[in-house]
Design a protein around this nucleic acid. Sequence first.
DNA 1: GTCTATACACTGATAGAC
DNA 2: GTCTATCAGTGTATAGAC
Lengths: 198, 198
Amino acid sequence: MPTKPWSRGPWTVGASRTTELYRERGFDQTTTAEIAARAGVNERTFFRHFPDKREVLFDGQAAVRAALVEAVAESPDGLRPFEILLCAFRKAGRILEENRPFSEPRLEVIAVTPALRERELAKAASLTEALTQALRQRDVDDRLAGLAAQTGWAVFHQAVQAWIDDPSHSLDAHLSRTFEDLRTLSAAVPSTKACPGS
Amino acid sequence: MPTKPWSRGPWTVGASRTTELYRERGFDQTTTAEIAARAGVNERTFFRHFPDKREVLFDGQAAVRAALVEAVAESPDGLRPFEILLCAFRKAGRILEENRPFSEPRLEVIAVTPALRERELAKAASLTEALTQALRQRDVDDRLAGLAAQTGWAVFHQAVQAWIDDPSHSLDAHLSRTFEDLRTLSAAVPSTKACPGS
DNA sequence: GTCTATACACTGATAGAC
DNA sequence: GTCTATCAGTGTATAGAC
């Protein structure tokens, strides 16, 4: 519980109050003046802590990112790329589960606001790049690292969605099943012969 | 060659002139006043045709999107998800190859401009959603459709990157190899046992 | 399609409080 | 030296009347 409302970190007073505002009036209808007013600081001060209106909601992502990269870096030797990633995703999933009460309203606002969805996608892209680098340092082949990070992230994303829709199973269970789905999909290497008009 | 400089479409005069501007001064340093001036229209007129500065560069995407969705819709019965997608990607790839001289400067600006990369990611996300729907209508299982679209898109993206870096092989060849890579990656379903600290 | 406002996100400079 | 407030400004995007 930080004393200064805008000190950085996942769940600061300022950040959660801003989330409230976005949910009340909608992101587009919320002015930076209102944000600053509700947090009790000057408008200019707001921009000293965040580069723009959107970034407030993504402050907490740093923890997830750090957990993922660290997990990859510390994974045991000899594991295959998807095995490394599964461990990392399970670790990150634990953070999500612990902070569900805070995460849910946040995800709700993002889901209905195009500008925030754009930012979320950008964060994800940056994260998969970091994962790619981390995998390379675990001696994963250069060419495979990027593909593994991107498709692995797609699996994670899909699993989280499924977990939100159906919390009766654990996130871990959803993760395992989604990886299994991917194996099924790619088991049959697509043949090019049947394409029409080629 | 449209008569009206701002009529919509992939490679209009206005759009390519705007691309020039972004490359000369950089996206952030280019004002909407300059864009309008170079195209010989009023600033207000610019915003009548495009919702914002970024959208100019993504006007041509509609063609690729349409080609992809159409290819999925018209794919022969009995194909598996990744087979359907490979055919669609090959078709879309042909558009890329044909318009390479126009596409390259465009991709260059996007690559170095965070704001434009965000928009590109948003477009991609919308496209994979469309692919998901199209796959569902080809009787692909609901759960698998989203995963196939997202991971398939990752393969496509990866293959296009490889093709830009190494044009000595065809895009089709890169596509096949990348799908093969994915099969290798997911052949070993990740086991959870070896994760440290769980 | 144009012109004239206008709201609001965001920036730079400067100076004061702790 | 670090954090903050105030002021004045730029540029994107929108709305209304023509």
